[in-house]
Structure formats: structure tokens, C-alpha cells
Design a protein around this nucleic acid. Structure first.
Lengths: 192, 192
DNA sequence: ATAAAAATAGAACAGACGTTCTATAATTTT
DNA sequence: AAAATTATAGAACGTCTGTTCTATTTTTAT
């Protein structure tokens, strides 16, 4: 059985590429089939329908993110150190799955109720991780604001927006950029 | 002549609503016509085609933003004070045109070359304003980083992401949220 | 009041869409 | 070797798409 899971994953790869560059609605099953030089029915052989294909991509990549983040957040070390690790891992994972993560934020309104729910759930899970960690830092008197949720949104803003402008071909290394971003999140733009 | 510019703007309003909630590709001309209870041809009477409608929305709202931002940035007062004003105005304008600004960031890949160009130009104009202001602040030794462009991206991240989570029905006032965001941009999340 | 212009509707078109159906080739299991 | 399963293709479906065409009503200008 399931020998040719390989063929399925090829399909998935192409779909990720197309969805990431043209969006969910902007990519047709025919586009995907043509891009990999197979028939439309072949796509339907591996995936029940378009939305299941979309969800398979999420499962393939973004689905596991909250768990990974939680592991680091609940790991060892000082709270602030752990928070930095959390940011770092989040940035690394976002870069590693850049295309998929981009997909995750595009066209979410066009999904079926089921798809929307999954999307929202993952986003909520991630937000909660950050709020929880910020609350911990707050209890150590390390955080400036009272509105933790807004703060969490702002932190996530920086991480997620990064995907929109990051260009792997650019002349700065990933590590350099991560450090810049983490520094911004922690201390903002102003000197001292 | 042009007596019923009013009818055109009604159409524009509906289109903004639909585009903002369902995206460019996800909204058909028929959707728009149906939503305002007119015929499809009526839409075409006011707008040459779908993309021109899209561009009309940009013109109607986002187009003027760079100029407004520039005016404040080049205004009076200390550099840091002016920068805060810049952030404040940018947040205000984004809120005022929340739907349109959202449209501006959705589906940009699906536009024609012409549309893409306009989109990119406006985004570049705004980025340049920030880079310029940050350079000024840097020359006054008020900014911590050397990579101004990344810093500018991070600042814009916070502002633009705000549109994704801001809910006018929420229990915090706009002013409160603006202040939180500006504080985050300036000083980050850490105490001192 | 009449002519010109603007606003509207409705039908039609050709193409793209997601999906399904039927049939055949390739592979795996027995 | 035969049977069963999996992988593939191709045609067809009904629906939706952006757009155009023709015709009619309404408004404006003369």
C-alpha cells in the first residue's frame, strides 16, 4: 500500500508554490495539474477536493507549529531567555516554511467554515502562547505594558510581516535579520 | 454633466466592502451589482472593467496617503516628535480607511502589471518616507540600529498588522491602542 | 418641446471553474 | 498467471466568470 506517497507529495509541493504566489482563489486545480504535467483527475485521486488539498498543506507544515513553539516556551532557562528562544524558533520555522506560512495568511476568508475554523484555531493557539509568556514576564516585572494582548499582536506583527518582505536572495544573512527583529521586539527603535 | 457622481460612489462603497471581505478574485462584478441591486452593465457604465474599479478604490483612499504622511514628516517640531506624529497619522488614516487599506494588501499578486506597479509604487513611497525619517533620527543619534530598512519594515509591520486584528467594536478606544502601538514601536516590550 | 447624453436592464458569449464519470494503463497482491 | 488495487487520462457537467451588445428609460441641455 501507500507506496506512491511520493507522487502525492510532489503534487503538494507544486500546489504550495502556486497557492503561495497566486492565492487560493487565484489557483485552479487545472493550474496545478498543468504545472506538474498530470491530469485534473489525477489531482482528485490524491485529494478529495480543493479545500482538502489546502488543508493537507496546512497539516504538512503549519499545523505542528504551535506544539513546537510551546515546547520551547516551556523549556529551560530564565523567562526572558526562553522568550527570546521562542521568537528565534518562530522566525526560523516561518522562514523554513515561508511559502506555506504565507498561504496560511492569504485568502483565509474564502475557505469553507471548516477551513476557516482550522485557520483561526491555529492562529489563536499561537497568540495564546505569546500572551501566556508575556504574562509570565509581566509577573517578573520585565514587561512595560498592561495590555498583554495588544502587545502580543504587535510581537506577532513583526514576525508575520517579516514573511512579506524577506527575500532569501538578499544580502543580509537570516541570522542577522533575526537578531535585528528580536532586538526590535524587545527594545523598539529608540536608543536606551 | 457629472451630476450622478453620487451613483458612482455608491457603487464604489459597495465594492470596497466586498473586496475587503472577500478579496479581489473572490468578488465578482455580479456580486457587486447584486449587492447594490443594479445590473451588471450598470457597473460597466461607471467603470471600464474590474481592475479599473479596483484602481478607482485605491485612488479614492490609499493613493493620497504618502503625500499626507510626507506633510507631517516634514512638518514642525523636534525630529522625534515629528516621527511620533507620523506614526499617529498613519494609524489614524489606516483606521479611517480600514477596509480600503486592507484591500491594498490583499490579492496584489492577482492584479495586472499596471495594477501591480501602482501598488508597489505606493508601498515604496511609504517605505521611503520612513527610511528617510529614521535616517534623520539616526543622525541625531536617537536610533539604535544600523539597518534602517529592516527597522522601517518592522515599524510598518506593526502599523499594517494592526489592521488585521483591530475591531472597532472592541472595548479599547482607538487612542489607547494607538498609544500602545507607538510605545511598542519606540521602546519595544521590555521595561527600561 | 426636442435633441442629446447619461443611466439602466437584460440577454448573450466564450472561457474558466470545481467536480464527476467512464475507461484504460500500471502496479501490487494473491 | 489471475485478480485486485492503484494511478492515470480525457471527456463532460453545470455553474460562474469578465465582458459586450442591443435596447430602453431617464435625465439634462438646447
Amino acid at each position: 500500500m501507500t507506496k506512491n506517497r511520493y507522487r502525492r507529495d510532489e503534487l503538494l509541493e507544486i500546489a504550495i508554490d502556486l497557492f503561495a504566489s497566486r492565492g487560493y482563489v487565484g489557483t485552479s486545480i487545472r493550474d496545478i495539474a498543468k504545472a506538474i504535467d498530470r491530469s485534473v483527475s489525477n489531482v482528485y485521486h490524491y485529494f478529495e477536493n480543493k479545500e482538502e488539498l489546502w488543508l493537507a498543506i496546512l497539516e504538512y507544515s503549519v499545523q505542528g507549529l504551535p506544539e513546537k513553539l510551546r515546547t520551547v516556551a516551556h523549556g529551560e532557562g530564565e523567562p526572558m531567555e526562553r522568550f527570546k528562544n521562542l521568537l528565534k524558533l518562530h522566525l526560523e520555522e516561518s522562514t523554513r516554511h515561508q511559502r506555506e506560512t504565507k498561504i496560511f495568511f492569504i485568502d483565509e476568508e474564502r475557505l469553507s467554515p471548516k477551513g476557516k475554523l482550522i485557520n483561526k484555531r491555529i492562529q489563536k493557539e499561537i497568540l495564546d502562547i505569546y500572551v501566556e509568556q508575556l504574562r509570565l514576564l509581566q509577573s517578573h516585572n520585565l514587561v512595560r505594558t498592561k495590555h498583554l494582548k495588544i502587545l502580543a499582536f504587535n510581537v506577532l506583527a513583526t514576525i508575520n510581516w517579516f514573511l512579506r518582505w524577506y527575500d532569501p536572495e538578499g544580502d543580509m544573512s537570516k541570522e542577522e535579520i533575526y537578531d535585528e527583529i528580536i532586538d526590535f521586539v524587545l527594545h523598539g527603535m529608540c536608543k536606551k
